[in-house]
Write a protein that binds this DNA or RNA. Structure first.
Lengths: 151, 151
DNA sequence: CTTGACTCTAACGTCGATGTCAGGCTTTAG
DNA sequence: CTAAAGCCTGACATCGACGTTAGAGTCAAG
């Protein structure tokens, strides 16, 4: 299919598709006249690219990952040393991402309890001096201190 | 504490701290001479801000969420109508956050399987014609189609 | 063959998040 | 008191991920 159709089917703008190609994340073939021709599989590929980019993964990593995702094992080098290096890089990103997710989950938990607290027709004495709901304070304790320098 | 110390303790650059203030995410008090003075709680606050921003959350969301995350119930009005409005807003933010987390989890799953595939001394026959690791293919199926336009 | 929709490249513009630099106060150590 | 270190504002610079526009070629339908 050509770029317009891929755009329509993925929701990505034409500009974005060309940009991904520029970054080496897509490699359509060309017709004699220069038109980009995409494969069916590229629909999924674009979805994944967008997903990973939206996760703020560095595009180098996205490229690495995608390379394997879509070229399958073809791209995995035979040298165990090379494989190890690549795996370590990806593992590092994965660890970062995992930590980020955990931290976000904490924030989400916290937010959820706050919503409940705002909505819930609270709550005992309600002294004017009391600065905040016990529910929230409990939640904060549970959520923990939210991670250091993320990147 | 002053901005330098907060910077040291959070790993965020001085510039970033001033930027967060500009965006309404931090509101230090000022000395007579204009120096910013931060509270102990701001250390945690910065950590959360950085985490949310690094997850590519729209900063509007970060701001709203943070306001309540860190001021606790102090910001909650008495009028039930106001409370309802705020609760709805926050619920919206929460939904966004939750969706984001899901999307990140997909990316992480994907990345994890790729790492495994690169690392794993694969795997049965390994015919030259076989285009790619079965592990990855399974993972792709499991991870699902990776979400639409993320933002 | 002509028209209109589609595509191409190339270039500039934008926006958020951040770096960096300049010029001028303030605070602290000696 | 003085120098060094820290802080202030304001501005311009950068980088990634796009949007937009301009000018020209291509393709399908009438």
């Amino acid at each position: 299919m050509r770029i317009g159709e891929l755009s329509a089917r993925t929701g990505a703008s034409v500009r974005m598709l060309r940009y991904y190609e520029e970054q080496g994340l897509l490699t359509p073939v060309r017709t004699d006249s220069g038109y980009r021709i995409y494969q069916e599989a590229d629909v999924d590929r674009v979805a994944r690219i967008r997903c990973m980019l939206s996760a703020a993964l560095p595009s180098g990593v996205v490229g690495q990952a995608l390379k394997f995702l879509l070229d399958g094992r073809a791209a995995i080098p035979d040298e165990p040393a090379d494989r190890a290096r690549i795996a370590d890089t990806l593992q590092g990103e994965l660890d970062l991402l995992t930590a980020k997710i955990e931290s976000l989950r904490h924030s989400a938990d916290l937010l959820a309890t706050i919503v409940a607290d705002v909505r819930g027709d609270v709550v005992g004495p309600g002294h004017p001096g009391d600065p905040g709901g016990a529910v929230v304070r409990r939640a904060v304790r549970k959520a923990g201190p939210a991670l250091g320098p993320t990147r």
